[in-house]
């Protein structure tokens, strides 16, 4: 597996990370080194193995349908980089 600059650019855009053009080749090399190393996993026979996720042995607990949170507009807005009245504000989105 080998990541070219175009792929790195696409992944960076998917992750919304600005990467200056001149850093793409070096970053691609680093990522390639990591991916190459990761690829030893292909040696492992995983036929018939169920993937593990978290502590899969447990069943999920459920919460009761009670409103006990959320009436705190100032608290949720207090760290906002930009707010207008009781809204978060972002550059206008044209749909």
């Amino acid at each position: 597996m080998s990541l070219d600059a175009a792929t790195v650019r696409r992944i960076a855009s998917l992750a919304r990370l600005r990467v200056p053009e001149d850093q793409l080749p070096r970053l691609g090399q680093e990522l390639n080194a990591i991916l190459g190393w990761i690829e030893q996993l292909n040696e492992v026979n995983t036929g018939g193995v169920e993937p593990l996720t978290g502590s899969a042995a447990l069943a999920m607990r459920m919460r009761e349908d009670v409103v006990n949170d959320g009436a705190q507009p100032e608290a949720v807005l207090s760290n906002a980089p930009e707010r207008i009245d009781a809204f978060y504000a972002v550059p206008k989105v044209v749909e």
Binding site: L17, L27, L31, T46, V49, L52
Partner: peptide, 30 residues
């Protein structure tokens, strides 16, 4: 952090999920 976000985004992206993430979770089970 940027490097790991990129690796993580890549291994989950379309066409690579099974080869990387799913494979890794199976090895993890082993």
């Amino acid at each position: 952090v940027r490097r790991r976000i990129l690796i993580g985004t890549y291994v989950l992206s379309a066409g690579y999920y099974d080869a990387y993430y799913l494979k890794a979770q199976k090895v993890r089970a082993l």
